[in-house]
Amino acid sequence: MKVDTASEPSPLAATGLTRTYRGGKGVFDITLKLAAGEVMGLMGPNGSGKTTLLRMLATAATPTGGHIAWFGNANPHDPSVRRRLGVMLDQPAHFDKMTGYQNAWFFAHQFGLPDQLARDRLDELFRWSGLWDAREQVVDEYSLGMKRKLTLVEALVHRPSILLLDEPTLALDYRAELDLIERLQLLSLTGTAVVLATNDVHLAERLCDYVIFLHDGRLIREGHVPQLLTEVAGSKEVQLQVNSPIALESLRALAAVEAANVEGDTVHIILARGANPAQVLAVLNGTADMVSNMRVRRPNLGDVFLKLTGVALPAAHR
């Protein structure tokens, strides 16, 4: 059961949020609202604007247009706003010549934690994250995964009301990923609002209540996860690993194919409800030696994105 925080204004509300860069790239006219305890996923391929949007929501970047309010307060420089945010940016930046514990202690104190509380929480979080044995090691010697875990520890230590996490599972091992999911589910139940920028469809399906799809800096679709998944319910995704290029147009011309795209050496095909994967193979008749592997599976959020845009989300997270 989620905590009742109805008396407070929405943790996060953004209207017409825009940030443009030279060359025309950026994020354009995004409107979103996050409730207490809600987990929102920002999904899209690389360069779609997830990181820019998350940075604006985290007060790390200034919008060139639009408006954001955190608990009704629209001043991003107000320390009382920032004290309620826990942020994990894409770059796990630290003071490299200091130890992991020294780094975390510094950030804990910046958020106003007294010594004893900081010590207790850091001890618990270092144990939870698996960094306990490396706590006195300088961050320069940490692996990327360890640096990202340390950033998570620093984002969680002051128990923020809103967590903003950019690719939180990137470079984490499977065990750490499961621990993180469990922790985020628990935090959500106790009222923490969470925004995740991620391409990890399994993470998004497991954790997110609501998902926003971004493409070329624009919001192209949003909705609750079950609602989005109904759009591809009954259809199938066929993944073909190919040895050499195949004619996508002939595949797309099939009535049974809703969307098809290539990413690396893999062709992703969304088949319409009731369609038989053999129809795809029939088109490739005579070129079967090109296909080294074929996989049919139930569709996921990545397939919804593929169907909407014709662009596949990065393979590592599918």
């Binding site: 940075r55 790390a60 420089h77 920032r82 940016l89 770059q91 930046a93 003071f95 910046q110 958020f111």
Partner: peptide
């Protein structure tokens, strides 16, 4: 160096006035 490493971005999220 801090700007390159991303530390400056992290400073912006701290509850301290610039």
């Amino acid at each position: 160096r801090e700007r390159q490493s991303g530390l400056t971005l992290r400073y912006r999220t701290l509850p301290v006035t610039p």
